[in-house]
């Protein structure tokens, strides 16, 4: 990882009709690091990455990708990046080798270099033995691997991965996360979008949290967690309506925030060991009973909750 920026985004804006999909987003990704854009569906992650891929022209703002402006030099941008879309963007009636060969040509590879690189990528994604099979016959996980392999063909300096683990089984997800780490180890810069907090937490050097088209926070995991004051999250359920206890729990010493949704009450506290007995006392006085307790150390979910008042899964 170096300090020189691979991607510099400045005040990026994009609307679709009256909907402001991206509203003045700015961030910076250093070379060799993994930067995750984290946010719920509709937060503006895909629109942002589409603009950074020169698929969409921004209404305002600009970004430099390895020194190429997305407004002024889209071909320069495209020459340094590999794009892994959320969908399986492959030709299902072609074999894996035919797909890779075609995409290699689209990236400008020819002749012996193309042939050699296709075989290398087949090895990387572990599908050389089944390279003659049509992609349409592959499992979801195998398709995902080819989907990523396509983006690696021209040895790009930067890879964009737009929610690459959506809708796949845990084992395939694990493989993809591992392959992203491998790419980083090879010196590539990765811009990764996800709405899975665990992935962002595990993979990222830097995380940008987006909501409603805005970048509401960014930094390392530790920096972000500090935003909630290192607070612990306690999820509780009651044997009665949560609304009956909320006001009393908010008054408990050491409690900083209380919210309820679908019968689950989330409480942010400074010290769970000290606060939890107090919560039980108050509940008893109200003739209610706590039926379950789940204590979660500070994480990105808590950060999102702290910043937006909503859970990330919303």
């Amino acid at each position: 990882m170096t300090n020189s920026p691979a991607i510099e985004v400045l005040d990026l804006q994009r609307s679709f009709g009256d909907t402001k999909a991206v509203q003045g987003v700015s961030f910076e990704v250093r070379q060799g690091e993994i930067f995750s854009l984290l946010g719920p569906n509709g937060a503006g992650k895909t629109t942002t990455i589409s603009m950074l891929s020169c698929l969409l022209r921004p209404d305002g703002g600009d970004a430099q990708v390895m020194g190429h402006s997305i407004r002024e030099d889209p071909m320069g941008v495209k020459s340094v990046l590999g794009f892994v879309p959320q969908e399986i963007a492959l030709y299902e009636d072609l074999t894996a080798r035919e797909n890779l060969t075609f995409w290699g040509k689209m990236y400008g590879l020819r002749g012996g270099a193309l042939k050699a690189r296709v075989e290398e990528v087949l090895d990387v994604i572990g599908l050389r033995d089944r390279a003659k099979e049509r992609v349409g016959k592959y499992s979801g996980g195998m398709k995902r691997r080819v989907n990523i392999g396509v983006a690696l063909l021209h040895k790009p300096q930067i890879i964009y991965m737009d929610e690459p683990t959506v809708g796949i089984d845990p084992q395939s997800r694990r493989n993809i996360v591992d392959s992203v780490v491998t790419l980083k180890d090879q010196g590539m810069t990765v811009l990764y979008t996800t709405h899975y907090m665990e992935e962002a937490q595990e993979l990222s050097d830097q995380i940008g949290i987006m909501d409603h088209g805005k970048m509401i926070a960014s930094g390392t995991h530790d920096q972000l967690v500090k935003l909630v004051g290192g607070q612990t999250r306690i999820d509780l359920t009651l044997n009665m309506e949560a609304g009956a206890v909320l006001e009393d729990w908010r008054a408990v010493e050491g409690v900083t925030q209380v919210s309820a949704e679908d019968g689950l009450v989330t409480v942010l506290v400074d010290d769970s060991n000290a606060v939890l007995p107090r919560l039980f006392d108050v509940t008893n006085r109200l003739a209610a009973r706590i039926t379950s307790v789940d204590i979660l150390e500070p994480n990105l979910e808590a950060v999102f909750l702290h910043l937006t008042g909503r859970a990330l899964r919303d």
Binding site: S50, S53, C54, L55, M75, K78, S79, L81, F83, P85, Q86, E87, I88, A89, L90, Y91, E92, W103, M106, Y107, G108, V150
Partner: peptide, 12 residues
């Protein structure tokens, strides 16, 4: 399948 979008991220 967004393959067209992917094509547009190449030099095509």
């Amino acid at each position: 399948s967004r393959t067209l979008q992917r094509l547009l991220t190449t030099a095509a």
